[in-house]
């Protein structure tokens, strides 16, 4: 590199665009057809970024979806649109044109939502509700011992897992009689991820640790040593690595060769003293996107030391990152209310 950082033209400026909306961004998602991104804010807005207008922020639209923060966001079951949950106790469907349809309104915040083409799962308080793809019909309501903090479907959409105090509950979506498989570990579990091959479930814990369970035999795995609480975790496409925030680098735990037990994690893209705040694994390549608390965003290759900076600092803590389904495009949002989108496939 020849230029000084300050004089370098950021990749974001040549390959993408950004716009400051002012409200902290809480979540991001891409529709299944890859044509629209959505980002939610603490003030209840959904920002829709059409892929066709990726570099033209004047085509991005803001939709008022919730009264209070958008707490969770997922692609809709169909090709287009999104599902959002908020502090106004509502679950909504957002069309690609910005139409808002209320699917649920209860007495608790809708804190988590996840979907497959066939099902919607969302949580409000201790209850996890499974609906059909239309979102109109409740198939089952599953009770948990404390408030649900994270929901994931397995890759095939057959099982759904929810994190809460003292562990995780795994349920079969289609079961006639609901019996839970409890994965127990004392403490508060605050986020969840599932291995794409169904080999393990990992949670982030209140005490700057991760906890994992091997699903074949329920064996416990502990992954500790973080200086901060882990807020973001993402398995790579083939499940070889689990990328996380919580340190001043991307932390990667090996899920091969007997790992992660007894194996030290690998660190990528270390920015001394600047903490990684969000990670997202690329859906098709061995690449991790990482956002840092100063607003820097970069891509890092898992197999090498190679790092590609997207932008450097000055945008506030990166709170969320999301790739399109084929990984050609990416958006991110920050706590200072910056929304940015970049086309990674474009050639000049």
């Amino acid at each position: 590199m020849s230029a000084v950082a300050g004089e370098m033209t950021e990749l974001l400026a040549t390959r993408g665009a950004e716009k400051v909306f002012g409200s902290a961004v809480t979540a991001a998602s891409c529709a299944r057809d890859g044509q629209t991104f959505a980002l939610g804010t603490v003030d209840g807005d959904i920002v829709l970024v059409p892929v066709a207008g990726l570099k033209h922020p004047e085509t991005w639209t803001r939709v008022e979806a919730h009264d209070g923060a958008v707490l969770c966001l997922a692609p809709d079951t169909g090709k287009e649109g999104f599902l959002t949950g908020g502090e106004d106790n509502r679950l909504c469907r957002i069309g690609p044109d910005g139409t808002v349809t209320e699917l649920h309104k209860g007495r608790r915040w809708v804190e988590c939502v996840a979907s497959t083409p066939g099902h919607i799962a969302f949580s409000a308080g201790k209850q996890l509700e499974i609906r059909d793809s239309s979102g109109e019909t409740t198939l089952k309501t599953l009770e948990h011992p404390s408030t649900v903090t994270g929901i994931v479907f397995d890759t095939k959409g057959k099982r759904v897992a929810a994190s809460h105090y003292n562990g995780v509950s795994v349920w079969f979506v289609q079961a006639r009689v609901d019996t839970v498989r409890p994965l127990e570990w004392k403490g508060s579990h605050t986020a969840i991820a599932i291995h794409p091959g169904g080999e393990a479930i990992v949670t982030a814990m209140q005490e700057n640790d991760l906890h994992g369970w091997r699903l074949s035999d329920g064996h416990n795995m502990r992954m500790s040593g973080y200086p901060r609480r882990v807020s973001s975790l993402s398995f790579t496409r083939n499940g070889r690595w689990l990328a996380t925030s919580g340190a001043d680098a991307i932390v990667l735990w090996p899920f091969f060769g007997g790992g992660p037990m007894g194996k030290p994690p690998t660190e990528l893209a270390r920015l001394p003293g600047v903490f990684c705040s969000a990670v997202c694994a690329h859906p098709k390549s061995d690449i991790i996107a990482a956002g840092f608390e100063d607003g820097s965003v970069l891509l890092a290759e898992t197999g090498s030391e190679r790092v590609l900076p997207i932008c450097l600092g000055k945008r506030g803590r990166v709170s969320t990152l999301c790739f399109s389904p084929f990984g050609g495009m990416m958006v991110f949002g920050t706590e200072d209310g910056c929304v940015a989108a970049i086309d990674l496939s474009a050639s000049d």
Partner: peptide, 12 residues
């Protein structure tokens, strides 16, 4: 905001 008093023991 309606909150449930959910107490847990920390692992510290």
């Amino acid at each position: 905001v309606d909150a449930d008093e959910e107490v847990f023991e920390t692992n510290n």
